[in-house]
Design a protein around this nucleic acid. Structure first.
Lengths: 122, 122
DNA sequence: TTCTAAAGATTACGCCTGTAATCAAATTTG
DNA sequence: CAAATTTGATTACAGGCGTAATCTTTAGAA
């Protein structure tokens, strides 16, 4: 199931809090400059693609994600890392490092990840 | 400049070695099951997009990348990390760790990256 | 020299995407 | 109750993408 760029923005606000009505979703997407009709189109398409489910509430729908954000993040990151870096994650991190896109917090997180990995794998 | 999935496969073989004629490129893409005409379409589109340049050699063209693979990798990884993880790279690595997609080599690479970072930033 | 094959240019075509407008039904408002 | 509004469904439409086929020109083969 492929989620397009614009559709992903819709998914994000639904992941944050759901179920959500279309009115609510439109409201949360206020920063994007989409017409309400546009957002509704995305909702329909996402339902059709199986990325969202809905339940009826009166005359309108309450939408919920059909895939978790975690699962989606993982699927996408694996896909790009296999396409761009032959499946290895470290070259990506190295690229970030070279461009000074790593913060102190990132470094701390990475250390923790390494420590956890070593506890389980040594 | 957006490079599509199929186009990226074409770019990859050109990045590996260039300049390259269309015949050569078609040959290198043998594993994909694309018709020669299809590959030529991708070449034209990539030139039009500014991702490839070419020089004439007799009746045919020799193609070369107009963007480096490094630059492209970086641009794409930044884009996905900002879209999926709010710009932080460590959650991506954490996801890989949780799915046991980190190898001993990855861990060694990460340690080295951290060490280099600390040398420059402390 | 005439025919053919090969290269790039142009055209094709259905599906996806971004961006809505229109339609039909139901509900709220006056 | 009649009118206006709101909801989802359907339709629209241009540009990108995957996947070639056809056209045009030219170089090599017979």
């Amino acid at each position: 199931m492929e989620i397009s760029n614009a559709e992903l923005d819709v998914m994000q606000v639904i992941w944050r809090d759901h179920p959500a009505s279309s009115a609510e979703i439109v409201a949360r997407l206020d920063n994007k400059r989409w017409h309400e009709k546009t957002v509704k189109t995305f909702l329909s398409r996402l339902v059709k693609k199986g990325a969202l489910t809905f339940e009826k509430e009166g005359r309108s729908y309450l939408y919920s994600p059909a895939i978790s954000q975690q699962d989606y993040q993982l699927k996408e990151s694996r896909s790009i890392i296999s396409r761009l870096f032959n499946g290895r994650v470290s070259p990506l991190v190295a690229g970030f490092a070279k461009q000074s896109k790593l913060s102190k917090d990132d470094i701390e997180d990475l250390k923790q990840i390494i420590q956890d990995w070593e506890k389980n794998n040594d």
